[in-house]
Amino acid sequence: MTGNVLIVDDSLVARLSLKGILKETGLSLSEAPSGEAALEALAAGPPPALVFLDLTMPGLGGIETLRAIRDRFAGLPVVVVTADIQAKTLEAVRELGAFAIVRKPADKAEILGAAERAIGGGAAS
């Protein structure tokens, strides 16, 4: 796999954890500690190949960030990594076009599988 992956999570541990999982892929990794910082990074470009996005964040939450990404960067695959596993939350995330949803604590195989499908052009889940 090639390309840049943007990891968006207010938790440093969560970002480090995802970076630890993804480092073996050879993908270039960048991170943002908030929804606002993520949108700034995306606006500054160049666009990443994939975004991993947390939902429960202070300030601009994950749902709002996902909506903004859909509006401004259509086609950019977003994998939501979340502890909020309520059916209605997951339904809202799917309606907003998330490529995939991974429940926290993040499972290595799920993260790698989602990255491979998103960047390799596989089917969303």
Binding site: V13, T56, D84, K104
Partner: peptide
């Protein structure tokens, strides 16, 4: 931060 993230997952489970 790790404890906060653990609480985040724990409360996510509780909310579900």
């Amino acid at each position: 931060d790790a404890l906060q993230e653990t609480m985040n997952v724990g409360f996510g489970q509780a909310a579900a």
